[in-house]
């Protein structure tokens, strides 16, 4: 196997299901040892991309290599080098966490003792040592996901695929999963491709991000640059009375030199904080302006743009390569 700089490469992947185009010229290059976020809405093609890259689906066109091997012609070799953590907890509910991990270890052709030892190590590492002998059906959502992660790591695969690892988890469990992902990429030997619907998640975990829409990548870059391209963070000001919205919008917009959006349903004014503006300085500036003008705000906060805002921005930009007709 020749060492390559890229652990995952996809070129022009195409996949059609009855009547819908799931992948439409999907390109991706993930540098070895990094975490890459594949960001997109429901139905954008994230899961299809992961399924093709993990050999579960055959693409209709294009090619892909994972860990240096072709996913179509060398599926066996690819499978020996990947871990997959899908959207569902893909373990046997009736078995204990330890029994599940031991079974998967055996299927990776570890000996009985090596499989059991590996199971114990992983349970320890993911904080499941105490509950390792309980049936999985009695696990909490966060525990299941952690067990799922552990099952994807039995042979310490060079490339790990995480398909929406935190969708449907409460914030506490989500933080647990994030911590687990961070710890496992800390030594730089594992490449992670992570799909998510949340820019914040990609921002938290990923070194690089690709935004996917209608089966193709419409923007990519490192999180900072991408966020800059996507219009930066947002400053939200929430007021007590809807009647105060216009005045608030005027004050905050003037203070930050940007065009505010008002949302009556949430009594909120939202202003982009464009890099290279200092986010904290912008927050202080807005707060001072509000106080000086005598506008009473209930809450004021910085946040990452939502995926909807990202797409609004990307699809509104002229000359981009979004094909809004495709697959919708």
């Amino acid at each position: 196997m020749s060492l390559t700089d890229y652990a995952v490469v996809a070129e022009g992947l195409r996949k059609r299901f009855r009547g819908t185009t799931a992948l439409d010229g999907f390109d991706l290059a993930v540098r070895a040892g990094t975490v890459h976020g594949l960001l997109g809405r429901n139905g954008a093609g994230k899961t299809t991309a992961v399924r093709v890259l993990t050999t579960l689906l055959r693409s209709d066109g294009g090619r892909a290599e994972v860990a240096g091997y072709d996913v179509g012609r060398q599926a066996d070799r690819v499978r020996a080098r990947i871990g997959l953590v899908g959207q569902h907890t893909a373990v046997d509910e009736a078995l204990s966490g330890r029994q599940n991990l031991t079974m998967f270890g055996r299927l990776y052709h570890l000996g009985a003792r090596a499989a059991a030892r590996r199971a114990d190590e992983l349970l320890e590492r993911f904080g499941l040592a105490d509950t390792g002998r309980k049936a999985v059906k009695d696990y909490s959502g966060g525990m299941r996901r952690r067990l799922d992660l552990a099952a994807g790591l039995i042979v310490a695969p060079p490339v790990l695929f995480l398909d929406e690892p935190t969708t449907g988890l409460d914030p506490h469990s989500r933080n647990e999963v994030w911590a687990a992902v961070r710890s496992l990429v800390a030594d730089g030997t594992t490449t992670v491709l992570l799909t998510t619907q949340y820019l914040e998640e990609a921002d938290q975990l990923a070194h690089g991000i690709s935004v996917i829409d209608s089966g193709r990548v419409i923007a990519e870059g490192d999180p900072e640059r991408l966020k800059a391209a996507l219009g930066g963070d947002r400053l939200d000001v929430v007021v007590r009375d809807v009647a105060d919205l216009p005045a608030t919008a005027a004050v905050v917009g003037r203070a930050l030199g940007a065009r505010p959006e008002t949302h009556e349903d949430t009594r909120r004014v939202s202003v982009p904080v464009r890099p290279p503006a200092d986010r904290v300085a912008a927050l202080a500036e807005a707060a001072r302006a509000l106080r000086d003008e005598g506008v009473v705000a209930e809450d004021i906060a910085l946040r990452r743009p939502t995926l909807d805002e990202v797409f609004l921005h990307l699809t509104a930009a002229p000359g981009d390569r979004v094909d809004a007709e495709a697959s919708r």
């Binding site: 993990t54 050999t55 990947i82 997959l84 899908g86 907890t89 893909a90 299927l107």
Partner: peptide
């Protein structure tokens, strides 16, 4: 439906198994 079959299929085990 639960993805267990997919997990098996993504592993280097014998597919027939």
């Amino acid at each position: 439906a639960r993805g267990v079959t997919d997990r098996f299929r993504s592993m280097p085990m014998a597919p027939s198994a």
